[in-house]
């Protein structure tokens, strides 16, 4: 990326061999820092600083009212033994394992279809993207009703083909599949990324493959897939990171309301970040919640690293020499 600039010498660049910089270069350096200053300040105040503070808080017991009390690794020990943490983490991983492959598979299918339509492509692209524009709270509300056991649109549709739909919102075994179903409605961004990647595959590659006698499947397997592997990898990483942090839709549906929370066993819908949020801002266990946040960070880093490692084997980058 950075290599695309062909750099003529900077105005007032130092004469080689002389260590003292000219006043002009000094002034340029000063301006460079002035341009970067907002980011540096923001980085220190809202990212690096909070990271350090959060690491420190994770070693304390802190309820906002009383000063933090150092407790060493107690929070982490407690974390490992907390069935709620295990449950919410299990739910989150289960969701991610279903959501990410399904999003990638369906999006790829839709993008391949979209690539083949001519003038109407823009129209269909809009259709698949509009759900992404819908505020997550509205998505949660909408699917709470669509997934309704007796009167919901989804079970009505299933009944049309003779299937007795499950209790999506109350049966603990079906809560998570229902949430996955909801999440699939908003896969439009992935479709657009794949479509852009598909359109960047040079046509002559397909022609060459055809001349070599490659059928439709062989062309897909040996031309399309390698050529869009960068986009596939990108969406794998981004969607995984996002789904490990799932919050808004599910919180809207099942949490934050005392009546629904007690009448319905919300354990089945507890995601990791929802549990973290409750620990922090409902029970004011700020130290414990900070430890939870660091565990999440480590999990995300770990999974991403594994994905990057694996990608080396599968991802083809055009013009890698650049």
């Amino acid at each position: 990326m950075a290599t695309t600039t062909v750099s003529p010498p900077a105005p007032g660049a130092a004469v080689p061999g002389r260590r003292r910089r000219t006043p002009l270069a000094r002034r340029e350096a000063r301006w460079a820092w002035l341009f970067l200053a907002p980011w540096i300040v923001g980085f220190l105040a809202f990212q690096a600083g909070p990271m350090i503070a959060s690491a420190w808080l994770s070693l304390t017991e802190y309820d906002v009212i009383n000063p933090p009390e150092y407790t060493g690794l107690d929070n982490y020990r407690e974390l490992m033994a907390d069935p709620q943490v295990a449950r919410s983490l299990g739910n989150t991983v289960y969701y991610t394992a279903l959501h990410v492959p399904l999003v990638m598979l369906i999006s790829l299918g839709l993008a391949l279809l979209l690539k083949r339509v001519g003038r109407l492509q823009g129209f269909f692209r809009t259709v698949f993207y509009l759900p992404v524009m819908t505020p997550a709270v509205a998505v949660g509300i909408l699917f709470l009703l669509l997934l309704n056991t007796q009167d919901g649109l989804i079970n009505r549709g299933l009944a049309l083909v003779g299937i007795d739909g499950p209790s999506w919102t109350t049966d603990p075994d079906w809560v998570m599949p229902g949430i996955v179903l909801m999440s699939l409605w908003s896969l439009g961004s992935t479709v657009i990324i794949y479509l852009a990647a598909l359109q960047n595959v040079p046509r002559d590659l397909y022609e060459a493959a055809s001349i070599d006698g490659a059928g439709a499947w062989a062309r897909f397997r040996h031309v399309t897939l390698p050529m869009i592997s960068g986009a596939l990898f990108f969406t794998l990483v981004v969607n995984t990171i996002a789904s490990l942090q799932m919050f808004t839709e599910v919180y809207t549906m099942y949490f934050g309301n005392r009546q629904t929370q007690t009448s319905f066993n919300s354990d089945a819908a507890t995601f990791y970040v929802i549990h973290l949020f409750q620990e922090a801002f409902q029970f004011l266990h700020m130290g414990y919640a900070s430890a939870m946040a660091w565990l999440l960070f480590l999990i995300i880093m770990g999974i991403t690293l594994v994905q990057v490692k694996l990608s080396k084997r599968f991802v083809y980058y055009e013009g890698e020499d650049q």
């Binding site: 909070p50 808080l57 922090a280 946040a293 660091w294 960070f297």
Partner: peptide, 14 residues
């Protein structure tokens, strides 16, 4: 790469 959850609490305290 930094998850929102990590900075959420200290940012609230700020």
């Amino acid at each position: 790469m930094l998850p929102f959850a990590v900075t959420m609490i200290p940012t609230y305290l700020i």
